[in-house]
Computed example of a mutant assay.
Amino acid sequence: MVFIEQPAAWLCWDFHTLFEEDANVSLAAPKTSLVVAPNVPVFDLPIHVALEHGLFAKRGLEVTFSETYSQAGYSNPDAFKRQKESLYERRQADAYNLCEWAGLDRSERSGRGSQVQALRPAVVAQVILSFDPAIQELRDLAGVAVGINQFTGSHYTTLQFLDGALAREDIVLSHVGEPLLRYEALKRGELRAAALMEPYVSLALKEGAHIIGVNFYRGAEVVAPDLPATLRNAYLEAINEAADLINADFDRYKHYIVEPIKDRLAVHELARTFVRYAHSRPMDEARFAYTYEWMRGWQLTPGASEFSSLVVA
């Protein structure tokens, strides 16, 4: 594989007594709040829907986003300087979601410590697209730089796609970063192919691109290992219920996904084809072993960790 980098005063109060009482209450009360670092809206949709319908509050949880999703903070070459990872590492968030492979990678390298809690509800396609009529199938990508965001789903799924269709030495990846920049480089012809997810797939097809390959994949819910199990399980129950609502009326929630490019893609133009939502489920030991060995084969991990250290059993 070839990889190309692109670039007040208190009156008559016994303060000591009050402080002591408050401390005792906080020590006895279980933690019920969780702060989430934001990801691309198509992946975070179940969280948005759960917030809209009060599904966390129904379970006694207070869930908030640490800040608004920013494309500009999505693709720093150093993964731990990206928005969601840096918020988590600085303890400004307790959890976030990302692709399965990256969930293991970040948990393995986290300075704070993290684990994969489960496979996330979002089952989203990374789609290799092209405007170039000379590129019609995966075999046509031999020696052709495919635009990706390094160490994210676009990176890993492209390796999965092309390993088998091409010799490894013919696989060329180009780190372009955030999806809108990747799409614009594709449209200008600076890239002949790029891996993208929604809403950029619908935008590309609207503007004349064609599909070379589609790969649906599950992502991972990464959580702080010190969060109580009751909180983690209630959180997953809420986003699973949200997934059911999305599946029952996807059109009602499309606007969340379209938001980053709402000036270029109308809500009704977002396809239903390239995104699905299912209940989160555990990453079992067999799946971990297969995924981890695949990562090792691509030198994406030193391969020195155990299932129990990277995954919530």
Rank of each mutant, 00 (worst) to 15 (best):
E207S: 13
E207L: 10
Q160D: 08
H175R: 02
L191M: 07
L166K: 05
P179T: 07
L205E: 12
A195T: 10
P199E: 11
R188Q: 14
P179W: 04
F161I: 11
L196A: 06
T157A: 09
A194R: 04
L205I: 13
P179M: 11
H175C: 01
S202C: 07
L203Y: 00
E178G: 05
K206L: 13
K206A: 10
L181R: 15
G164V: 07
L162T: 03
S202A: 10
S202W: 06
P199N: 11
R182M: 11
H175N: 12
S202D: 06
L162C: 07
V176G: 03
K206W: 01
D170K: 15
L166R: 06
H175K: 02
A193C: 10
L186G: 09
A185I: 02
V172F: 04
A194Y: 03
L186H: 07
A193H: 03
E184A: 09
E198R: 03
E169P: 02
L181N: 12
Y183I: 10
Y183T: 09
L205V: 12
A165F: 12
L203D: 00
L186E: 08
E198I: 06
L205G: 09
L180V: 08
E184R: 15
V201Y: 05
L205T: 10
E198D: 15
L196F: 03
F161K: 10
E178T: 02
A195Q: 03
L159N: 01
L162E: 03
A167D: 14
